[in-house]
Amino acid sequence: MKQSNKKDALIFLGPTFLTYVLFLYIPILFCFYLAFTKYDIISASEFVGLKNFTRLFTYSRTPKIYANTLKLVVMLVTMHTVFGLFLALLVRSLAHGTQHVFRFLYYFPCILTTASVAIAWRYIFNKDLGIINYFLSQVGVDAIPWLNDPFWVYGTIAIFSLWKFAGNAFLYFYIGLGNIPITYYEAARIDGANPFTVFKHITFPLLTPTIFFVVLNLFIASSQIFDEPFFLTGGGPGDATRTLNLYIYETAYREFNFGYSSAIAISLFVLLAVFTLIQLNVSKKWVNYDY
């Protein structure tokens, strides 16, 4: 039996093992290797030591690209968390029958194809023909250059990102709120606590695991942000919205500089891992898991 256990486990894990080795583990190792080479897919790869990394840290464009990514991470993590929590509290305070309708509606954009709806949103943001500026003009606001002004492009990305993905944070918070035992609220009601006290002393502390999870997930997703700048701004104007992932894409598939591109990918990977570990550690101080 023991003999066959080992054999059976191998047989059942075999296909997954094989696909993960081929399409996940080997590519990861390969990426680390490429980061130390100069490679353009046509000629043989050439070992260059740390040259890609020194270029990364000394090239005049890179600080801006890291800063853009950080700016977007801070902006999007904050906005999605606050807005998602707001929507969840809003829907939870509605009559029971209507909650499902709004949950369905608010999560709906999340399942839509980003590339498809982004095509439409580019027209919506159009300076002269877009509907946002049309409605603004009706109330006397001048046309806003949504797609080519270094300041407004961040608003553009924020609006699109919230419309498309706020449903995710909303859904996690909605589920999280539903897991808070109702008895706490009943006790508070009997004690005559006002809504702010209830939020501060019951909802918030008991929601901290969900908040942490949402923040961490948003952090991981937004530090890899690609779709929004790619579809809406193309990284511009200039380098205004060029993010790390967009830069990786461009160095690899427009300049065919796979070594350098891999080095940037590795830097993102390492930064992500370090920040995630820090957050996991800091979380022990404020996340409340016992209830």
Binding site: Y20, I28, Y39, F226
Partner: peptide
Amino acid sequence: IPFKGAQMVLLLILAGMMVPAQVTIIPLFI
């Protein structure tokens, strides 16, 4: 199926969720 190292195998599989697509896409392309 009881076998040694099941926990390790699970961790290796789930670790895949943490890897940015950009890290594997260049090697996969090549």
